[in-house]
Design a protein around this nucleic acid. Structure first.
Length: 894
RNA sequence: GCGAAAGUGGCGGAAUUGGUAGACGCGCGAGGUUUAGGACCUCGUGGGGGGCUCCCCCGUGCGGGUUCGAGUCCCGCCUUUCGCACCA
C-alpha cells in the first residue's frame, strides 16, 4: 500500500486548479489587500527540446525548480508569470517526442493552458517573419555564397559533422564543398554589445565565459605587406603582436586566400594546386583534429615587410584559417608556437625579437629553443631607423629596448603614419548562417525577382505559410523541398503584379525560440509581437532555467535578436534574461561493470581504457567487453570496488547518461504511478544541488515518499487512509497556544526554508522540512497555527498534498495565494546554548550554558568539566579562546 | 594541450564569515507491530581500540604550510567531470 493516498489527492487538486484557473496570470496587475499593485515576477523554462533519448526524469527537473519558485513568489505577493510552450520546428520525426516532452506538466501542473504557444502555429511564426523583416530592413539579413557540403548521392546538403574523410557519414557517399546562396544574419555587428551586455547579468560564470570565448575579441593591428612583383596588391594580416613585426620571417596564406594564385610562381604551381585540392577534401573537423603535424607548401612568391623592407617567402598552409582575421598571417616563429613548429619542419629562419626579462644583456647569436610567447620582455633586433625602407617609408623605425606594450604602441603609430597598418579588433564570431534546405521551418517572407533580387513581403501579407503537402523529402540538387512546388513558389509582386518566386529556403530551428519569451507575455496579440505596456511590465525574465547545452547557441542568438528589437523600439530592456541557472544532468542508476577479454578472462578495471574502437586492455591492446555486475557481488576495498569472489579484480562503478541504447532510462510516468507527482518533484529537488550532475536512485524516491506519508499522518491523523475518511484531522491538532519550543522549531524551519528557496537550494530546504516533521511527531499535540505554517512551507514542494492538508485544517479555497509564513526573530532565541570545550583544539566536553551567560562564568563551567580537568592536568593554561555561543578553547602546554 | 569546476561514510549529499565534520535521506543492523508485507514505529550506524552510561586514537583525494583551531585559507601534486581545441 502506498504511504498515503497520493493518487486521489493529486487528481482532486489538479482538477480543482484547472476548474478554478488558480494559476491564471492576469494581464492587469492584481491589487494587494492594502491597495498596492503586486510586483511582477517572470520565471521561465527553456523550451523543451526533444532528443533521441525520449522522455526521462531529467525533463521535470528544471520545471519543478521553476514551479517551486513560482509558487513561493505568489505567496510572497508577486504576480507570477510562469508559462510553458514548445518548439516543434526543426525535427519533424520527433514531434511525438515533443508532445510527450510536454507531458511533465503533470508534475508542474496545468498552470499555463491559456498562454501556450507553439512555434509552428502560423499565428506565431507570422511574428517570427515580422522580426526577420526588421532584420532585413536594418541591413542585418543578407544573402551570400557560402561553401557547404553537398552529397550528390543523398541529394542533400550535410553539416560539417556529417561528413568524414570527404564522405557522408551515412552510406559513405562522396561529398564536395559547393558554394551556395545562403541567408546570413549580421550578428557580428552586435559583437561588441553582446560582449558588453554580459557584464551585468546574473549568469553562471562558466556560461558567460563561453559566450566571451565564442565572440572571441582580439585586439592588435592590421598590417599590409607588399607583394614582390605585384606593386598593385598587398597582403593584409591581422596580428595581436605587432611588436614582433621585425621577427616575421615568412608569411602564410590560407589555401583559400584569393591572392594565392597570383603570388604562386610557375615552378611551384603544381605543388600548390595539389595542396589546395587536398585541403579541400578535409572537413574543418579534420583540419583541426589532425593537428599533430602541420603541413604547407611554398608558393614561390615573396612579400615585403613594411617595417624593414625585408623580402620574405609566402607559403600556404591549412593551419591558417580562411575564416578568421584576414586569412593570412605574418609568421613570427620565435614568438608563436605554431609558427615555430612550422619553421622547424620546413627549415625557415627564426629571429628572436623579444628577449625574456632577466637575460636582457645576454648576447645571442642563435635563436633560442622553442617559442617565447610571454608578453614580458625587451625588444631586440628591431631597428630600421638608420635608413629608408624601400618604397614604403623615408625613415625606418626602432623598437629596440622597449617593452612589449611600448613597442606595440609605437609600431602601430608608425604604421598608421606610413599608411601601412592600423590598430584593429577582430572577433572570432562569424555571421549566422540562417537558411536551411528543409521543409519544416519558417518560410522566409521574401520574394525574388527574375534577377534573384530579394524583395520583402509586405507586413500585411504575413504570414507566409507553408504549403499543405504530404512528402517532405528532399528533391535533390541542393534545393529546398519547397522548390518542387511551383504552385507555392510562383507568385506575383503584390505591388506591381510582376511575376516573382518565393524564397524556398526555410529558417533554422533557433528562429522561433529567439523571441518566444516575449510572446508568452502577450500570446494573443495580432497587432504586434508583444504589447509595449505589457513588455515593460514583465521584462526582463527574472529567472531563466535550462540546460547548459544552450550556453552559447540559443542564448547568444536570443540576445542578438533582443538587442535588434531594442534598437527597433519593440522592447525596453537591453538584455532578455537577467538571472540564468542551468540544471544539472540526471544520470541513470549507478552501475557496476566488469571487463572480460576475448578469452573471457577477467580484466581488472584499472587496465581498461578507451581505444579507437571501444574499450581495450591497455597492456595488450586487446579489445575487452563490459559485463554488468549485480551490486551484491561487489565490495569496496580501499578506494575501489572489487569483485567479492575475486578481490584482485576491480570493477568500474559509475552512473551513465540515460540513453535508450544503454537501457537505463527512467520514465517519470512510472515514478508518478508508483509514488505520485509530489514525491517525484520532491525527490528531484532532494537529490542534490540543482546545478549539479546527479545519479538517479529509485530507492531514494521511497525515502521522500515516506516523508510525505509522515507529513500526511502528522496533520491528517494516523488513521487517514483515503479521501473518503472525510476531512479528518489528526486528533492531536490543538487550538492551544504553541509552546516556545514549538515556535522555535517552526521559525527555524521558516528561516531555513525561506533562505534556501531564495538561494535555489531546494535540497536543504526539504531537509529542513523533514527535520520539522521528525521533531513535531514527538509532540503530544500539534497547535493548529503551527500546522498551518508548516503546510504553507511544504506547499511549493508538494502542492497537491499541501492543498489537501490545508483544506483539512478548515480552509475552503486554495492556499496558492496565502501569504508566506513570516519569520519572527525572537522566536528563534534560545535560553540555553550548547558549547564545545576544547583543549588544544580537540573537543573534550560540551556544556549547556545560559544564552546570556558572561564569559567568565562560561570559562568557569568549562574548566570545571571533569574531562577537561583531566586534559589540563599538569599543564599550564597559556591562552583561553572564547567564541560566544560556539566554543571555548584552552591552549595549554608544559 | 588550454581553461573551469569538483574530490567528505557502503551510496546521494550537509557543514561557504575558519569554531562540536557527516544535517537530511538511502542502505544496513537490532527490536516492536502485523494473518502477511517492498507497510509502519523505536533505537543504532565514519573507521579502529579499551576495563564499553564513559574514554582514547585515526579520519574530508595526496604532501607541505598558516592558525589556539582548517573540509573551509595558502603552496605543490594526483584523479574525475565538463567546456574549448591551430582564432594569429
Amino acid at each position: 500500500m502506498a504511504a498515503y493516498p497520493f493518487a486521489q489527492i493529486e487528481e482532486k487538486w489538479q482538477r480543482y486548479w484547472d476548474e478554478h484557473e488558480t494559476f491564471e496570470t492576469p494581464d492587469e496587475p492584481r491589487v494587494a489587500e492594502d491597495g498596492t499593485p503586486r510586483e511582477p515576477y517572470y520565471v521561465l523554462d527553456m523550451f523543451p527540446y526533444p532528443s533521441g533519448s525520449g522522455l526521462h526524469v531529467g525533463h521535470p527537473e528544471g520545471y519543478t525548480a521553476t514551479d517551486i519558485v513560482a509558487r513561493y513568489k505568489r505567496k510572497q505577493g508577486f504576480d507570477v508569470l510562469h508559462p510553458m510552450g514548445w518548439d516543434a520546428f526543426g525535427l519533424p520525426a520527433e514531434q511525438y517526442a515533443v508532445k510527450t516532452g510536454t507531458h511533465p506538466r503533470e508534475t508542474t501542473e496545468q498552470n499555463i493552458a491559456t498562454r501556450e504557444i507553439n512555434t509552428t502555429d502560423p499565428d506565431y511564426y507570422k511574428w517570427t517573419q515580422w522580426i526577420f523583416l526588421k532584420l532585413y530592413e536594418k541591413g542585418l539579413a543578407y544573402q551570400a555564397e557560402v561553401p557547404v557540403w553537398w552529397c550528390e548521392e543523398l541529394g542533400t546538403t550535410l553539416a560539417n559533422e556529417e561528413v568524414i574523410d570527404g564522405k557522408s557519414e551515412v552510406g559513405g557517399h562522396p561529398c564536395e564543398r559547393v558554394p551556395m546562396r545562403q541567408w546570413m544574419l549580421k550578428i557580428t555587428d552586435y559583437a561588441e554589445r553582446l560582449l558588453g551586455g554580459l557584464d551585468d547579468l546574473d549568469w553562471p560564470a562558466s556560461t558567460i565565459k563561453m559566450q566571451r570565448n565564442w565572440i572571441g575579441k582580439s585586439t592588435g593591428a592590421e598590417v599590409d605587406f607588399g607583394v614582390v612583383g605585384h606593386p598593385e596588391d598587398h597582403l593584409r594580416v591581422f596580428t595581436t603582436r605587432p611588436d614582433t613585426l621585425f621577427g616575421a620571417t615568412y608569411m602564410v596564406l590560407a589555401p583559400e586566400h584569393p591572392l594565392v594564385s597570383k603570388v604562386t610562381t610557375e615552378k611551384q604551381a603544381g605543388a600548390v594546386e595539389d595542396y589546395i585540392r587536398e585541403a579541400q577534401q578535409k572537413s574543418e573537423l579534420e583540419r583541426t583534429e589532425l593537428q599533430d603535424e602541420k603541413t604547407g607548401v611554398f608558393t614561390g612568391g615573396h612579400a615585403r615587410n613594411p617595417v624593414n623592407g625585408e623580402k620574405i617567402p609566402i607559403w600556404i598552409a591549412d593551419y591558417v584559417l580562411a575564416t578568421y582575421g584576414t586569412g593570412a598571417i605574418m609568421a613570427v616563429p620565435a614568438h608563436d608556437e605554431r609558427d615555430y613548429d612550422f619553421a622547424k619542419k620546413y627549415d625557415l629562419p627564426i629571429r628572436e625579437v623579444v628577449r625574456p626579462p632577466g637575460d636582457a644583456d645576454a648576447p645571442r647569436s642563435d635563436a633560442p629553443e622553442g617559442a617565447y610567447v610571454e608578453k614580458e620582455g625587451t625588444l631586440v633586433n628591431s631597428d630600421s631607423s638608420g635608413h629608408a625602407v624601400g618604397g614604403i617609408a623615408e625613415q625606418g623605425v626602432s623598437l629596440n629596448g622597449l617593452s612589449v606594450a611600448e613597442a606595440q604602441e609605437k609600431i602601430i603609430a608608425w604604421l598608421d603614419d606610413e599608411g601601412q597598418g592600423r590598430a584593429a579588433t577582430t572577433y572570432r564570431l562569424r555571421d549566422w548562417l540562417f537558411s536551411r534546405q528543409r521543409f519544416w521551418g519558417e518560410p522566409f517572407p521574401i520574394l525574388l525577382d527574375e534577377a534573384d533580387e530579394p524583395k520583402p513581403v509586405p507586413e500585411d501579407a504575413l504570414p507566409v505559410t507553408l504549403p499543405d503537402i504530404d512528402s517532405y523529402e528532399a528533391i535533390g540538387s541542393g534545393k529546398s523541398p519547397l522548390e518542387g512546388l511551383p504552385e507555392w513558389v510562383e507568385t506575383n509582386d503584390p505591388e506591381t503584379g510582376a511575376p516573382m518566386r518565393r524564397e524556398t529556403n526555410t529558417m533554422p530551428q533557433w528562429a522561433g525560440s529567439c523571441w518566444y519569451y516575449l510572446r508568452f507575455i502577450d500570446p494573443g496579440n495580432d497587432e504586434l509581437p508583444v504589447d509595449p505596456e505589457k513588455e515593460k511590465r514583465w521584462m526582463p525574465v527574472d529567472l531563466y532555467v535550462g540546460g547548459s547545452e544552450h550556453a552559447v547557441l540559443h542564448l547568444l542568438y536570443a540576445r542578438f535578436w533582443h538587442k535588434v528589437l531594442y534598437d527597433a523600439g519593440v522592447v525596453s530592456t537591453k538584455e532578455p534574461f537577467q538571472k540564468l541557472v542551468h540544471q544539472g544532468l540526471i544520470l541513470g542508476e549507478r552501475e557496476f561493470t566488469r571487463y572480460l577479454d576475448e578469452d573471457d578472462h577477467a580484466v581488472s578495471a584499472e587496465h581498461v581504457s578507451d581505444g579507437s574502437d571501444g574499450k581495450i586492455d591497455q597492456r595488450t591492446g586487446e579489445p575487452v567487453r563490459a559485463v554488468e555486475v549485480p551490486k551484491e557481488e561487489v565490495e569496496k576495498r580501499g578506494d575501489h570496488f572489487v569483485l567479492e569472489a575475486d578481490p584482485d579484480i576491480r570493477v568500474e562503478a559509475r552512473a551513465h547518461k540515460m540513453s535508450k541504447s544503454r537501457g537505463n532510462v527512467i520514465n517519470p510516468d512510472e515514478v508518478i504511478e508508483e509514488y505520485g507527482a509530489d514525491a517525484l518533484r520532491l525527490y528531484e529537488m532532494f537529490m542534490g544541488p540543482l546545478e549539479q550532475v546527479k545519479p538517479w536512485s529509485t530507492d531514494d524516491v521511497a525515502g521522500v515518499s515516506r516523508f510525505l506519508g509522515r507529513a500526511w499522518r502528522l496533520v491528517a491523523g494516523e488513521d487517514a487512509r483515503d479521501l473518503d475518511s472525510s476531512n479528518a484531522l489528526a486528533d492531536p491538532i490543538t487550538d492551544a497556544r504553541p509552546s516556545s519550543q514549538q515556535l522555535r522549531t517552526l521559525h527555524q524551519t521558516i528561516e531555513n526554508v525561506t533562505d534556501d528557496i531564495e538561494g535555489l537550494r531546494f535540497n536543504t530546504a526539504i531537509a529542513a522540512l523533514m527535520e520539522f516533521v521528525n521533531e513535531a511527531r514527538s509532540w503530544d499535540a500539534l497547535p493548529r497555527g503551527v500546522a498551518e505554517d508548516f503546510v504553507l512551507l511544504l506547499s511549493p514542494f508538494a502542492p497537491h498534498l499541501a492543498e489537501e492538508l490545508w483544506q483539512r485544517l478548515g480552509h475552503s479555497g486554495s492556499l496558492a495565494y496565502e501569504p508566506w509564513p513570516e519569520l519572527v526573530e525572537e522566536h528563534l532565541e534560545e535560553d540555553t546554548v550548547e558549547m564545545a570545550v576544547q583543549v588544544n583544539g580537540t573537543v573534550r566536553a560540551t556544556i549547556a550554558v545560559d544564552a546570556e551567560a558572561e564569559e567568565e562564568a562560561v570559562l568557569g563551567r568549562a574548566r570545571a568539566e571533569e574531562n577537561v580537568q583531566r586534559h589540563l592536568d599538569g599543564k599550564e593554561v597559556q591562552r583561553e579562546i572564547y567564541v560566544p555561543g560556539r566554543i571555548v578553547n584552552f591552549v595549554a602546554g608544559g
